[in-house]
């Protein structure tokens, strides 16, 4: 008679446990693109009359056929829009005093990207990206454009603090260090992406 405990069935139990957890584990997919909707319009208050120079607005229209009209020019694909968005945000065509200070705080690599075109945005604080769709526009195409607009901003933020875009987006803001980085990236460059109410064409 041997003194060893019979451990042969333990492998079976371990195997069953493995199968059980394989089957029951759900991988959370709480990832996505964050957006904050504008507050509800009070019907008694007339909408604020905002005067903005046309050069400070970057218009993207997407029609019901999913064609794009980018600043008046026709495009079939959204690809490469992030570059245009970034050039637009970082244009510094007519910076005021604060914007000059902001510009001087940038690392040299970002400063080099300012094209200073007179027909593009004055400075990042003024720049607005406007996305307008039809009701018949595909959600996937809209999300692609919105994604690229976000990409342009996150590229600027992350370049400013010397992280990659992925690292910057992973910042939680929970502890002091990551919050400081997050704020430093965003400071003076509001993420101004305006999503206009879709008009009726092509939808129901």
């Amino acid at each position: 008679m041997s003194n060893e405990i019979n451990a042969g069935s333990m492998a079976d139990i371990a195997f069953l446990l493995l199968i059980f957890f394989l089957v029951t584990t759900t991988i959370a997919s709480d990832k996505g693109i964050l957006n904050v909707l504008p507050p509800k319009q009070d019907p008694n208050v007339p909408p604020p009359d905002i005067k903005k120079n046309e050069r400070n607005i970057f218009n993207v229209l997407i029609n019901a056929n999913n064609d794009l009209l980018v600043e008046g020019e026709y495009r079939r694909k959204a690809e490469g829009l992030d570059k245009d968005f970034k050039e637009f945000i970082m244009n510094f065509g007519a910076p005021d005093e604060d914007a000059v200070a902001l510009f001087n705080s940038f690392p040299a690599s970002l400063q080099g990207q300012a094209l200073r075109r007179p027909d593009s945005s004055d400075h990042p604080g003024e720049a607005v990206i406007s996305i307008k769709t039809n009701r018949g526009t595909s959600y996937a195409v809209f999300l692609e454009v919105f994604d690229l607009a976000k990409k342009a901003y996150f590229d600027v933020y992350s370049e400013r603090v010397g992280l990659t875009s992925d690292e910057y987006r992973a910042l939680t803001g929970d502890d002091e260090a990551s919050k400081a980085l997050q704020d430093k990236g965003k400071e003076g460059i509001p993420m101004a992406i305006s999503i206009a109410e879709p008009d009726k064409t092509g939808g129901n």
Binding site: S29, D30, K31, G32, I33, L34, N35, V36, L37, P38, P39, K40, L143, F146, D147
Partner: peptide, 17 residues
């Protein structure tokens, strides 16, 4: 989204992979 604005639940996450 109009209804979400009416309900004042304005933080939206477009789920995506």
């Amino acid at each position: 989204q109009t209804e979400l604005r009416n309900a004042d639940a304005r933080k939206v996450l477009y789920a995506s992979t």
